[in-house]
Design a protein around this nucleic acid. Structure first.
Length: 848
RNA sequence: GGGGGCGUGGCGGAAUUGGCAGACGCAGGAGACUUAAAAUCUCUCGCCGCAAGGCGUGCGGGUUCGAGUCCCGCCGCCCCUACCA
């Protein structure tokens, strides 16, 4: 007898299943199940408070993937953790006069409660918190390994110092010329800092992007740009004597991607910070002007430089270099558009071929001799055979950087010039033969500055001894534990906290001072995905065996804001671990999905300061976690931004209730014991049976593509069809096997998305035992999805003029004949020239 | 300036390899049930037109029997990056 359909009560269902999953360890990743593995990972959060909508979206996507993978027969590793070190904890501790650790652990506890309330299927036994000594110990271990291999080093150089955060920033952390965290414009300071030699891996980090087929194109493009490989040449210019005529022994080398323009060089450039420039002008009449320019640059860099077209400034140094090909002296200028830390920090000025040099030459009255011309340019006719520079100036308003033919360029005159042209190779070869230049490659990527002058981070495990220099902390003394009783509220820092820094030299035993810098938090997040494979290992950061078992990450999901920093550092760290023999893995993340942002109803980003934040609890409380999950996945494709819309949430809740009633209705007419005989189904039953297969295939394929919005719409159609079947077919005429099968498929396909709903119906409506996640994903086949008759379009000259219902396997001739009848009106008086038949789709008649 | 992406109803969005544009949902309209409302159910819903029909995927060309999809040229928007020599 049919059971009464219970009311859908999200809250009681959700709490019930959350505790069952927890008690039964349903989502524990097992090492020995014998199933193929799948590693589904969402970027772990920074615990700055409770979770927000962006987190909810990120983890809902991952959870749907993880749960479905389980049903597809995979042993799934789906862990979670916290990126727990960082400045906000420290600032909160100062503000609220508490401990950074206390604040952080309280936030992590709250976040875990919310994750559980959302029903995320994490293996909580593997929870990793980067501020736990058991975790950060291994970050220190890795640092020491890198130190031994020469990949970690200390150097003094001008660095970005954020005066608000009181710490240095990595190049990557200066965003739009401002601190990525607080927006303050950093100052340049000369400081002794710790670096990781990521530039050693620049080429491999670039090359291996081509192997990442599962990554979005834009992320790979961003990384390529960031690594910034340029091919070109180094060219040596001899410094001229004080009269500016004869070359001296001193060489100054430039890097250029356009050696083909060497004959057009009319001046030579050094950056304002250049020590060489300061040396050249020391004690001369030019000294003061150079010093002033340097000073003004320091100020300019602290001014908002959003407007890109800044006017260029320069001063002459009074000295010259000799062009190695023409032997002509070139005046050395100091210019504010030259960067100290790119290339060799010296540039040859080619005003006719480079827009920046062009503007500079115009401003300071320097010559602009043309060296490249296209064939239709009058200059080409005039100068195509001229090897000497006879035209020393042009009347252009722009530099000419397009390809063309070299003019006024000595023996190379007449060759094709431009980027990657024959003249480039020819001139490099010519220079190389004479030992005054060589082919070379430059990267924009800089070494990774990891030291931070902050408390709440992983201490750099080094000791400075006045006798022995920088000495690593012995491995057996790890971890260097972060002291907990600093008085941050009173402004105390690690550098001032004697119990921490006072120590003895591990080498000579004399009193020595511990390094009080901590590591950039990005070091903590560069390998947490490896730790999840073996989270309780106290001998090593992870065993090779466990990493072999679970890595690489099959699906990595997170925000696009990590396209450069986190993803590049993690790739680097993985390669370093490989080269240390720890793992056999070139790349950590096989497939990457960058989810879009959740904005408010007006399309503005949500932020506390704007007061437009929609907290997840505001949806969970009235509707439940399942409604929230469905709404998030259905509203837009995962990669796209979406605007929060209360109506969509209400609609999602409506669908869940409707599907609930439909599944119950089917289950009441169905039986688990009945066997399906398709041939005995009536017409309505046959069509419903066909639709399960058609829609099931679509849904499965959409899951494979991570297209959850369309996967859901396929199930919506199935629910609509099933509900129509129940309305149309009397209770006694329904097929019990069909009803049960449809209900079971609907429950299975929605379980990854609305899991509590799924488990409840799996047990209560379908009466099945175990977990919905022990249920294999249903199989669907294309044969059963085929319709016996189909409606196809009939076109005349590509325009739809009619439709015909035909047997799905009707022969060509039959289709053609039926089509001609259907559109006879449009064929009247015309001659049929050609008929295109696409079976199952359309017939197109070409007639005129 | 360089790189990546996008442009489809009132809205979110479908259309997997060139094959019936607008699936699914939201909002809207009509009806049923109800004293009424909510909820639910049924129908309707690109634009113009009473209709027949015409027009429709940012704009202009092209390839093709056939283009949202491919090619060329524009326009607009978004993201990343930027005196990188």
């Amino acid at each position: 007898m049919a059971k009464e359909i219970p009311v859908y009560d999200a809250e009681s269902i959700e709490t019930k299943w959350q505790s069952v999953w927890e008690c039964e360890d349903t989502f524990k990743a097992r090492e020995d199940s014998g199933r193929p593995k799948k590693y589904v990972l969402e970027m772990f959060p920074y615990p700055s408070g409770d979770l927000h909508m962006g987190h909810a979206r990120n983890y809902t996507i991952g959870d749907a993937m993880a749960r479905q993978a389980r049903m597809r027969g995979f042993e799934v590793l789906h862990p979670m953790g916290f990126d727990a070190f960082g400045l906000p904890a420290e600032n909160a501790a100062i503000k609220h006069n508490t401990q950074a650790g206390k604040w952080t652990y309280a936030n992590m506890d709250q976040a875990v409660r919310t994750m559980k309330r959302m029903g995320f299927s994490y293996d909580y036994d593997r929870l990793v918190r980067t501020c736990d000594p058991e975790y950060y110990k291994w970050g220190q271990w890795a640092f020491l390994k890198m130190w031994e291999k020469g990949l970690a080093y200390r150097a003094t150089s001008p660095v970005n110092w954020c005066p608000s955060c009181n710490t240095v920033l990595a190049n990557e952390q200066v965003v739009d010329g401002k601190c990525w965290r607080c927006g303050t414009v950093p100052e340049k300071r000369e400081l002794s800092q710790w670096y990781l030699r990521i530039t050693d891996y620049a080429q491999e980090l670039l090359d291996d992007l081509d192997t990442l087929d599962g990554w979005p194109e834009n992320v790979k493009a961003q990384q390529r740009n960031w690594i910034g490989r340029s091919e070109g040449a180094e060219i040596d210019f001899a410094l001229a004597d004080e009269d500016g005529k004869a070359p001296t022994d001193k060489l100054i080398t430039v890097f250029t991607t356009r050696p083909d323009t060497l004959y057009g060089t009319t001046f030579f450039l050094l950056p304002p910070e250049s020590p060489l420039a300061a040396e050249l002008v020391e004690g001369t009449e030019y000294e003061q002007a150079v010093a002033e320019l340097k000073k003004s640059v320091e100020q300019v860099s602290s001014v908002d430089r959003q407007g890109s077209e800044r006017e260029k400034h320069g001063v002459f140094t009074g000295r010259y270099v000799i062009n190695p090909l023409t032997q002509k002296p070139l005046p050395i200028w100091v210019a504010d558009y030259i960067l100290l830390d790119y290339g060799t920090g010296a540039v040859m000025g080619v005003p006719s071929g480079d827009q920046r040099d062009f503007e500079f030459a115009r401003k300071y009255g320097l010559d602009i001799p043309p060296i490249i011309a296209q064939k239709d340019d009058p200059l080409y006719e005039q100068l195509k055979d001229t090897k000497e520079t006879v035209v020393t100036n042009v009347d252009w308003d722009h530099a000419m950087d397009a390809e063309g033919y070299l003019i006024q360029s000595g023996p190379f005159t007449g060759m094709r010039g431009g980027k990657h042209s024959e003249a480039v190779d020819a001139i490099i070869e010519y220079l190389a033969e004479r030992g005054i230049g060589r082919k070379t490659v430059q990267f924009r990527l800089r070494d990774w500055l990891i030291s931070r002058q902050r408390y709440w981070g992983n201490p750099i495990p080094m000791i400075h001894c006045d006798c022995c220099g920088d000495v690593p902390v012995p491995y057996e003394d790890l971890p260097v534990t972060l002291p907990e009783d600093l008085d941050l509220g009173a402004g105390e820092t690690l550098a001032e906290y004697a119990p921490f820094y006072e120590t003895t030299c591990p080498k000579c035993g004399k009193p020595a001072k511990r390094i009080t810098d901590t590591m950039d938090t990005f070091t903590c997040s560069s390998w947490y995905f490896l730790r999840y494979c073996d989270p309780h290992n106290d001998e090593l950061p992870f065993s090779k065996e466990s990493v072999d078992r679970w890595m690489g990450v099959d699906n990595y999901i997170g925000g696009i804001e990590h396209a450069i920093l986190h993803l590049l550092y993690s790739r680097f760290w993985t390669k370093v671990m490989r080269d240390l023999g720890m793992i056999d893995l070139d790349e950590p993340f096989t497939n990457l999905l960058c989810q879009g942002m959740v904005k408010d109803a007006n399309g503005d980003t949500m932020s506390k300061s704007k007061g437009n934040v929609v907290p997840p609890s505001s949806v969970i409380e009235p509707y439940g976690a399942d409604t929230m999950r469905l709404a998030i996945l259905f509203i837009a494709p995962s990669e796209k931004d979406f605007n929060w819309d209360e109506e969509v949430v209400a609609g999602a809740n409506r669908f869940i209730k409707r599907a609930w009633r439909t599944v119950w209705g089917l289950a009441n007419s169905g039986s688990v014991d009945a066997t399906l005989d398709v041939s005995k189904l009536d017409a309505a039953g046959k069509e419903l049976y066909r639709r399960i297969h058609e829609l099931g295939l679509r849904c499965t394929n959409d899951f494979d593509r991570s297209q959850f919005n369309t996967a859901i719409s396929a199930v919506m159609e199935l629910v609509n069809d099933a509900s129509a079947y129940l309305n149309k077919v009397g209770e006694n005429e329904r097929d019990a096997a069909l009803c049960f099968g449809v209900a079971r498929s609907i429950v299975a396909m929605l379980s990854p998305i609305i899991p509590h709903w799924g488990e409840e119906l799996y047990h209560e409506a379908l009466g099945l035992k175990g977990s919905a996640y022990d249920e294999p994903w249903p199989t669907f086949d294309a044969e059963s999805a085929k319709a016996s008759t189909v409606q196809i379009a009939v076109q005349v000259l590509g325009k739809v003029r009619g439709r015909i219902d035909v047997a799905a396997d009707a022969p060509r001739e039959e289709l053609e004949a039926a089509a001609k009848v259907a559109v006879a009106k449009h064929l009247a008086g015309k001659t049929v020239r050609k008929v295109i038949v696409v079976p199952g789709r359309l017939v197109n008649i070409v007639a005129n």
